[in-house]
């Protein structure tokens, strides 16, 4: 990791978020550099959780830590009332200490996850539209979509749903005028500059181009999702036959 990023990690902004959470901002916007700081910090949190931490949520450029204020209070119980700090200040000091330590050498190597997609057919009712919109052939759309490398900036919206960055502008397509009532689980879609995969059936306005037989939300596993923040993913096309085999092999 370069020296400049190291410095920026400890420059993160620490803000209160109610009496039970704290927000750590590593920058603004959607940027792989900023996100790598988010990931370095959360990897450290996984290994060395803060005392009184309940859990954290990492996002594009920030991390929010949820904590138990009563446990934090107990940590300073010998301090006289008039000298006692805000619970927030105690947590902020612990976060700052952690950020400073991170200057010394932490780094992260992204996992690469490959996701098979059966493009088109009934799985991708909007594939033709995406091609027409961008003056491409269907095969060109598939080629472009499956030759990109995408960064999982965060998981949210639904269990295991990845917010991906890195899609080629040449296949960007606006959302549908009217959303579908239900999009099947495994659907791969495009919405504006974004692409994504739906882990569970849900209503939505994305342009659907294919479907993956891989389960993104795995209730029995820990972690319960295929993807995690910081992963890099690649899509690769599979035939209808391979799709069926994959599904059949699992059940």
């Amino acid at each position: 990791m370069s020296e400049s990023i190291k410095n920026e990690i400890s420059d993160a902004k620490i803000l209160p978020f109610g009496e039970s959470a704290i927000l750590i901002e590593f920058g603004k916007g959607i940027d792989p550099e900023i996100h790598s700081r988010v990931k370095v910090f959360t990897e450290d949190l996984d290994l060395n959780p803060l005392p009184a931490m309940i859990e954290y949520v990492s996002a594009f450029s920030s991390v929010t830590i949820f904590y138990n204020p009563m446990k934090v209070r107990k940590m300073q119980k010998d301090v006289p009332e008039e000298k006692s700090l805000l619970t927030f200040e105690i947590v902020a000091a612990m976060v700052r200490e952690k950020l400073c330590k991170l200057e010394r050498g932490a780094d992260y190597t992204p996992r690469i996850v490959e996701i098979p997609v059966c493009y088109g057919e009934e799985f991708g009712p909007d594939l033709q539209y995406v091609a027409e919109c961008n003056k491409l052939t269907v095969d060109e759309v598939i080629h472009i979509h499956s030759h990109g490398e995408y960064l999982v900036y965060m998981i949210g919206f639904a269990p295991g749903f990845p917010y991906l960055g890195g899609m080629s502008e040449t296949i960007a397509t606006p959302r549908r005028q009217s959303p579908r009532m239900s999009i099947p689980a495994g659907s791969v879609g495009i919405a504006g500059m974004q692409t994504g995969v739906y882990p569970i059936a849900t209503p939505g306005g994305w342009q659907l181009i294919g479907n993956t037989p891989v389960e993104l939300f795995r209730l029995q596993d820990n972690p319960p999702t295929l993807l995690q923040s910081g992963d890099r993913i690649r899509f690769y096309p599979i035939s209808r036959k391979e799709y069926e085999e994959y599904k059949g092999g699992r059940s």
């Binding site: 978020f17 109610g18 039970s20 603004k28």
Partner: peptide
């Protein structure tokens, strides 16, 4: 405001 998604909390 140009805002990207971030965590919300109970009572936000």
């Amino acid at each position: 405001l140009e805002m990207v998604s971030e965590a919300v909390a109970l009572g936000t």
